[in-house]
Design a protein around this nucleic acid. Structure first.
Length: 870
RNA sequence: GCCCGAGUGGCGGAAUGGUAGACGCAGAGGUCUCAAAAACCUCCGGUUGCAAGGCCGUGCCGGUUCGAGUCCGGCCUCGGGCACCA
């Protein structure tokens, strides 16, 4: 019988489903394991690139099942979101209908891949049964002051007609549609993730099993900076202006101050400016610029005409306004130290502002023998600091030989304070410490930690999302919807024109409601939540997905979570994973769960790439229209460019799995996908390469087919096969544990090659078990053909016998002066003398070392001998 | 600009400091066949040699070591993240 995957695959998919093999009772005892693939947005058809993620997860799941673990592997749908609404506008299909249709298609595709999920736990975030708890969660956060309505300059996408979170703006553009994002001042809902900045940062250290690069990206995003807030008196104001700096040690070099144009003190500072109108106009123009424009314009500034007092030099320093100072970070005001900050340097050069050196390169100093701090400048005589503390013997004046051409910015021991009073002569880190002490003693500021992270903007002016459960009452103000009135249902009878913004705002029976406080007329919030709110806690809901009394069962959740193995794409390194870590901490603080980190282990699979083609205008070209001439791609006479790029619908380079499965079977796609490259790396899909996996499975099939016919068996197991079997069990097991699926499969190929020469029933059935996680259908079929009871899936994973793995003889590589000159075959674990005797009896080796002096002999047991001669 | 990661045959890739290229794709030759497909067998880094073998070879330059794809220093190229965050 020939290997015909299309005949056997549906059969086993049906059997697994009928036997409900992957459904699990979360209250039953057992060695629990919670596996999770990031739940997908139901965008429609899946391609082989998507497959990588799910196939990998399923292989792991089947492996753990066979290891006897009580494994939970649920799946659901991140089902709210813009594309559904856009489809509604374009094709007048309701977002819900479009979404549910896609879910059905994708679910079917998972089945065709032979992927086992516990569908009894399925959730879809667009259903009121789910989003009710989204709203409940929002209310808990609101109660604790972690959800608030605030007015701030926000990112507005003119294309999608909604605001965006900071995390969703990539290079100044909307990460969904690519439109240039504008800045608008709007009242919006925020979640106070900044209150957790320190814990989110510190928690990263404890995530041992997360990829370093993800932790690094989160760390950079949170952007913890140590520094100091310092007050600079301003004579014409009744209060000082506070700046934040990470380099308080350079304060003696602060020769001017720059405020963001939005800084609250600006109106007072320019009130009597002769060109006030011009400056105000300039400020307005800057406010209206997008973040990208603001940066591309380069540095621009205006002098306010007023001064502040540098509290250390006691000099008057001019106060400027600068477009490069961000209103949202720090205090929106900086002290400028042009000698030691690149941006300040550029600004000072541009406007002719003074530059004063207060840090010198340590290399310019002759180290002083009696102290840790460097000593006297080379080639000059020691002087007392001009503005320094007269009592200090370390006050050092130092000037560079030539005017600076660039700022020097060392923040470590390579820099030494000069011209800086009491801190002169100290290495920079010490100087920072000391100056903060002085600032605090003088009561003009303090050491502070600032974060780059901003609060999470969750309002969206769109329909297809969770309604924010708040009510506006003219008498009572902002009122939360009482919990017993949840869910606030998203009305389904709306019209999608795509023009007038959020259709919810025009839905009278939704908007008009009564105030829960006074019972009078009131209006509902019509913004919906960012869908990242939905996905920030869904992994908790999978344990008890149908519970309509509470969001989750704390006891069960504490038993099953954190998720033992989370699998998903690197694109969520910041967004989803940071939000989920934040929300998990808030639930911890509400004492609803006993853990702070949701995902114990994280794995990010790499993307699948495929050749894509672009025309001169940069538009993607259908591969079917492409012809190759002289190694160059053309469409007719038009030259095209080819590039390896992420497989995606928009790039027209997707490979749909259906044809592939029709021709070679899902098992072939699975084996090829895992074999193609290490799973964390990007991998180029090759239509030709697939055949290799098919041939391999075909050979395995033929062996089993002959064995089932009784025509292919040897009575006595060949010791070579037994040894290879135990070696393979060991190799495959450890490689799966380490996510090295590509080499696990190559070990199975080697094993099957050995087996083909000396068949053994036991070894063959072991092969079927080891292969099952990768090729589940064909292994089940062969298992059954051989007359076995039950399924491979529910059988026991084999255990390697170390003693039987040992080789009888080993090949020792022989080197002379580090170069390979021959090989000798000796018994395994032979004594060193025996090995050496064999080496020196070897004719070839004899020739290489004849009449030479032997300097040294290096022996690596079972591996190598290196003879060093002169 | 700053911070990560990666560079190995025609291609995907393999190698706890110890025989570079496992496993697979493509290619070449062969078996079977009237023929083709499928399947199976052999070869397959470069160079030199009749052969045995030699020499060269893991982006480039240097170092450590008996021995370096692997460790260290300096570059180059590509990919990713951050980017007036003071």
């Amino acid at each position: 019988m020939q290997y015909r995957p299309t005949e056997i695959e549906p059969k086993w998919q049906q059997r697994w489903a009928e036997a409900r093999v992957s459904e699990i009772d979360v209250t039953a005892p057992g060695d629990k394991l919670y596996m999770l693939n990031m739940f997908p947005y139901p965008s429609g058809d899946l391609h082989v690139g998507h497959g990588r993620n799910y196939i990998l997860g399923d292989a792991l799941y089947r492996y753990f099942r066979m290891q006897g673990r009580a494994a939970l592997n649920p799946m659901g749908w991140d089902a709210f979101g813009l594309p559904a609404e856009n489809a509604a506008i374009k094709r007048s299909i309701h977002p819900r209908e479009w979404t549910l249709g896609n879910i059905a298609r994708m679910k079917k595709q998972f089945g065709r891949w032979g992927i086992l999920y516990d569908w009894s736990k399925e959730i879809a975030s667009c259903e009121p049964e789910y989003y009710k708890w989204n709203q409940w969660l929002f209310l808990q956060l609101y109660k604790r002051g972690l959800a608030y309505r605030g007015t701030a300059p926000v990112n507005w996408c003119p294309q999608d007609q909604t605001v965006l979170a900071n995390e969703q703006v990539i290079d100044g553009r909307c990460d969904r549609c690519g439109a240039l994002v504008e800045q608008r001042e709007l009242a919006q809902w925020f979640l106070k993730i900044t209150a957790y900045a320190d814990r989110l940062d510190a928690g990263l250290d404890k995530l041992e099993h997360w990829p370093e690069r993800v932790k690094l990206m989160q760390r950079n995003w949170i952007g913890r900076s140590l520094g100091a807030d310092v007050e600079f008196p301003v004579p014409i104001l009744d209060h000082p202006i506070r700046v934040f700096t990470t380099r308080p040690d350079t304060i003696y070099g602060a020769t001017f101050m720059v405020l963001a144009p939005e800084h609250p003190d600006v109106p007072a500072l320019i009130a009597d400016h002769p060109d006030r109108a011009a400056i105000e106009e300039w400020i307005t123009s800057i406010r209206n610029q997008s973040a990208l424009e603001r940066q591309e314009k380069g540095k621009e500034g205006r002098f306010t005409g007023k001064s502040a007092i540098n509290p250390f030099t006691e000099e008057e320093i001019p106060i400027w306004l600068g477009n490069f100072v961000l209103p949202q970070y720090g205090t929106g005001a900086i002290m400028s130290v042009p000698a030691h900050d690149e941006r300040d340097f550029e600004f000072a050069k541009q406007y002719g502002l003074p530059i004063r050196v207060v840090v010198a390169p340590a290399s310019q100093f002759i180290p002083r023998a009696d102290a840790g701090s460097p000593g006297i400048p080379a080639g000059s005589s020691p002087q007392r600091g001009a503005t320094g503390d007269p009592a200090s013997t370390r006050g050092i004046n130092w000037e560079p030989a030539a005017p600076l051409e660039a700022a020097f910015t060392f923040k470590d021991e390579q820099g030494v304070s000069v011209n800086s009073g009491a801190i002169s002569g100290l290495a920079v880190p010490k100087a920072i410490e000391r100056i903060i002490e002085i600032i605090e003693e003088r009561g003009i500021g303090k050491g502070t930690i600032r974060y780059r992270l901003r609060d999470w903007l969750i309002s969206r002016q769109r329909y297809w999302g969770t309604p924010i459960p708040m009510i506006y009452c003219d008498r009572c103000g902002l009122q939360p919807v009482p919990e017993d009135q949840l869910p606030v249902r998203l009305p389904l009878d709306v019209e999608f024109t795509g023009r007038e913004g959020n259709p919810l705002a025009k839905h009278a029976s939704f908007v008009n409601t009564t105030c829960p406080q006074c019972g009078g007329e009131a209006k509902r919030e019509t913004d919906t939540m960012d869908t990242f709110v939905d996905s920030s806690w869904y992994f908790l809901r999978f344990i008890t997905p149908r519970d309509d009394e509470k969001i989750f069962d704390s006891q069960l959740v504490d038993r099953w979570l954190p998720v033992d193995q989370y699998i998903g794409g690197i694109e969520h390194a910041i967004l989803h994973l940071l939000y989920a870590r934040f929300v998990t901490r808030t639930l911890f603080d509400m004492r609803l769960i006993a853990f702070e980190e949701p995902f114990a282990r994280l794995f990010n699979q790499g993307v699948i790439t495929k050749e894509g083609y672009k025309d001169a205008g940069g538009a993607w070209v259908v591969p079917a229209d492409v012809e190759w001439r002289d190694d160059k791609p053309y469409r007719g006479d038009e030259a095209l460019t080819a590039e390896m790029t992420k497989m995606s619908k928009s790039r027209l380079n997707v490979v749909p799995p259906d044809e592939l499965i029709e021709r070679y079977g899902a098992d072939t796609e699975r084996v090829y996908t895992l074999f193609i490259a290490p799973p964390e790396k990007e991998a180029a899909w090759s239509d030709e390469g697939v055949i290799g996996a098919y041939r391999f499975l075909g050979r395995v099939w033929n062996m089993g087919d002959q064995m089932a016919d009784g025509g292919w068996q040897t009575a006595e197991a060949d010791p070579r096969v037994v040894r290879k079997m135990h070696q393979t069990i060991d190799a495959v097991t450890s490689r799966i544990e380490r996510f090295e699926f590509n080499t696990a499969i190559s070990a199975l190929m080697e094993f099957s090659n050995v087996l083909a020469e000396a068949p053994s029933r036991e070894a063959y059935e072991t092969l079927l078990k080891l292969l099952h996680p990768f090729a589940p259908h064909v292994t089940e079929e062969l298992w059954e053909m051989l007359g076995n009871e039950g399924m491979v899936l529910t059988s026991q994973w084999p255990v390697a016998d170390r003693a039987l793995m040992e080789e009888e003889t080993v090949t020792i590589a022989v080197q002379v002066n580090g170069k390979l000159r021959g090989q000798v075959e000796v018994a395994a674990k032979a004594a060193e003398e025996t090995v050496m005797a064999a080496v020196f009896n070897n004719e070839r080796i004899k020739q290489w070392i004849a009449e030479k002096e032997i300097v040294k002999k290096i022996y690596v047991p079972n591996k190598l001998v290196n003879v060093v001669i002169r």
